[in-house]
Amino acid sequence: MNGTRTDPPVLVRREGAVGHVLLNRPEAMNAVTVELGARLEQALRDLAADGTVRVIVVRGAGGTFSVGGDFHEVERLRAGGPDALTPLFVNFGRACASIAELPVPVVAAVEGYAMAGGFELMQACDIALVRADARLADNHANFGQVPGGGGSQRLPRLVGRQRALGHLLSGERLTGEQAAAWGLAYRSFAAEDFEQGVAAFAERLADRSGDALAKIKKLVYGGLGTTLVDGLALELDTVVEHVCGDAAGAGIAAFTRSERA
C-alpha cells in the first residue's frame, strides 16, 4: 500500500468559511501512516488558526473515510521494535486529541468504511455526519489487536460501558443509521442526500458567530472533564463575560431590531 505514490496523504482546501481536510490515500482506503497522522494534525491546526475558517470538515478520498492503521506500515515498523512503532500511534493520537483543543467545530463526513482508526477519528471529531449505508466498526479484536487511537476511552464515554464493550469485544459492524441511533453521529443521510446534507450543515455552522461557537465548544469539553457543579460555574462566568462583549451585543441588538420591525 505504501508503493511509490508521492501525493500528499492529507489535502487541505478552503471554501469561504469552511475548511476541508481530505485523507488522501484512496488506493489504501485512507489507511493511517506515521506521515498521515502528523499531516492530519498540522492541517487541522493550520485551518483552525486561519481567521477566515469557522468550521472544518474531515473526510476521506475515494468514497471511504478510513479503514484505520496501514497494516503494511505496522508490519514494517514492528520489525524496528517499540521505538519505531510508537510514532504511528502518537502522531494519530495527537491528531485526534487536537480536535477538542481547536476553537472551531470539526465535522466528520463519513461514508464507505470507517474502521478501527477511522472509527476512532470519527469519535474524536466534534460532530459526525454519516451516510446511512456507511459501514463502521472498531474491528481491532477481529484481528487480535487492541485499539490504539482512543477507542477504548472515547467510545464508553459516548455510548456507555455496555454498548462500548459489546462493540469493542465483538467487532460487529454498524450502519450509519445505527451509529446515529447510538449517539455516535449527529445525523445520518440517505446516500442521495449525503453531499447536500453535509454541505448545508457546514454552511449553517459557518454562518454562526465564531466567538460563540468557540466558547460553546470549550464549555462542553471543559464540563466533560469536571463535575456538574464546576461546569455550571464555568458556564455562568462564560455567559456573563460573553453577553457583556461586543460580539454578543451586536447579536442582541440585531434581534431586538427584528422584533420591532
Rank of each mutant, 00 (worst) to 15 (best):
L102E: 11
G117I: 06
C125K: 03
G60L: 02
L102R: 01
R131D: 13
I127M: 02
D70V: 01
V90D: 10
A109W: 03
V32W: 01
A38N: 11
F89C: 06
I127R: 05
G93W: 00
G93F: 12
R45D: 05
E120T: 03
F92V: 15
L129F: 04
Q123K: 00
C125N: 08
M122S: 06
S66N: 14
F71I: 09
L36M: 05
A132D: 14
R76P: 11
A95S: 06
A132P: 09
A124P: 13
D70P: 00
R94N: 07
S98W: 05
A43R: 02
M115S: 07
R94T: 12
V58E: 06
A124R: 08
G60M: 13
L44E: 10
G63Y: 04
L44K: 10
V90N: 15
A84Q: 08
M122H: 00
V58R: 10
E73H: 01
S66Q: 07
P82N: 10
V110R: 01
F119I: 09
D126Y: 08
Y113P: 15
R94H: 13
E73T: 02
L40G: 15
V110C: 05
R45A: 08
A128N: 15
E120R: 00
A116P: 11
L102D: 07
Y113G: 08
E35Q: 12
A48E: 07
A48M: 03
F71K: 06
G81V: 02
V74W: 05
G80R: 02
G62A: 06
S98Q: 02
V107E: 07
V55I: 09
R54M: 02
R94I: 08
A31S: 14
V107C: 07
I56P: 09
L47T: 15
V57N: 02
H72I: 14
T64G: 00
E41M: 01
G63K: 04
L40D: 06
V32S: 11
V104R: 04
A97L: 00
V67E: 14
A124I: 03
P105W: 01
A132Y: 08
P103K: 04
V110Y: 01
R76K: 12
E111P: 13
P87C: 00
V57M: 03
V74T: 15
